[in-house]
Design a protein around this nucleic acid. Structure first.
Lengths: 207, 207
DNA sequence: AGCCAAACGGAAAAGCTTTCCGCTTGATTT
DNA sequence: AAATCAAGCGGAAAGCTTTTCCGTTTGGCT
């Protein structure tokens, strides 16, 4: 029963329509936070984010009452972006290629956004809802991609979206002493393993 | 002037022997931290810990220069305790029973000490060494238990310690919307699956 | 134009971690 | 047993961060 309009993947939960400048600031903050989290880490001081966004701290805390609300919003935004990539890739590529490309994007979501993994596992009650959001948002996307590729006969049809998501998540867990690209390489092999067709070289390994 | 001395499984790294009262305080702090982390969470203020331990903050920071050092020490202590349980259980029970009991202890280590999982996955460089310590310490313990039970023919002999450890760790990852006992139940099933003997009821399910 | 609630900025408050230093005390020597 | 003194202690204060507060600005509306 969300009756409010225009809140694509909003920050916390917007009960009323935001003023134009406020909406702009929220977007700027989210963007800045994404950048800073990737650069300095999730523990970066709020000041760094507000400076980059060009707003005062008061503005940050108006929209994200707690620091964790901002982290949560960024993670959700990353998840949303990954989900949105599904239809886009499907429109631009053949089913199997779209699937492979999306899985690489998903891998990157897990591997490069350190904040995501730690938020998911932190045990902090503020992030309790995230794993659920993660699954609810991404499972349909992957299911659609899998179904399309399976319908074409390009890949095996006995893999459930959720299983694949978990398996890749598992592969992306950081293991002490492995080079950074290790996870991506393993996932590449897994992706190749989905294929029904003849072995192709360089499809998932190269960029 | 021999400055090297015994440091059983000390806090950070003790280059010289501690004075008796200092040793007592370190122990008290570790004990207090364990309690507080389990109660209030890993983010509990240091004050709560020093109060419970009955020491001043200065004392805490003398022994654990950074907050993360204390967390690290507690995690290591938990790992050590789990490792120490191996020989103890082996002495007190038959091989297969000892193995099952130890795996339950290991499950508890993963499941109830929220701090461990989040420290392992946090990405904070302060905890980088922990996954390695975890494996190095627990793998030999489990290997010994497995070998003993396998030698008796009580369990299958085609399971490597590391694989089992990872599998259980995987089962213990928190999944949104599952009851708290879910992980333990699943692990119980896995443990039963190791057995070569006739199905027994209530061995791993009950407490 | 003029109104005013929404939104802003940033100073101040609150809270945590970490440092500092004068005082206390366990161990050692005499 | 007393003296000595470096190791160790406690807690006040410094340094950072997050969070609150409030006077000022401004977008949306009439």
């Amino acid at each position: 029963m969300p009756e409010n309009a225009a809140a694509p993947a909003g920050p916390p939960a917007a009960p009323r329509r935001l003023r134009a400048d406020a909406q702009r600031n929220v977007t700027a903050l989210l963007e800045a936070a994404k950048t800073v989290f990737d650069t300095t880490g999730v523990d970066a001081p709020a000041k760094e984010i507000t400076d980059l966004a060009g707003v005062g701290v008061g503005t940050l805390y108006r929209h994200f009452p707690q620091r964790s609300d901002l982290v949560k919003a960024v993670v959700q935004s990353n998840i949303d972006a990954c989900a949105a990539a599904g239809p886009r890739l499907r429109a631009a590529h053949e089913p199997a290629a779209a699937l492979a490309a999306w899985l690489r994007e998903y891998t990157e979501l897990l591997g490069t956004k350190r904040g995501l993994a730690s938020a998911l596992h932190s045990g902090d009650p503020a992030y309790e809802a995230l794993p659920g959001y993660f699954l609810e948002t991404l499972t349909p996307t992957l299911t659609a991609l899998l179904d399309a590729a399976a319908a074409d006969g390009e890949i095996r049809d006995d893999v459930a979206a959720k299983d694949l998501m978990f398996a890749i998540a598992q592969l992306c867990l950081p293991v002490a002493g492995e080079s950074p690209g290790h996870s991506a390489r393993m996932v590449g092999i897994l992706i190749d393993g989905l294929s029904n067709g003849p072995r192709r070289q360089g499809r998932t390994a190269g960029q």
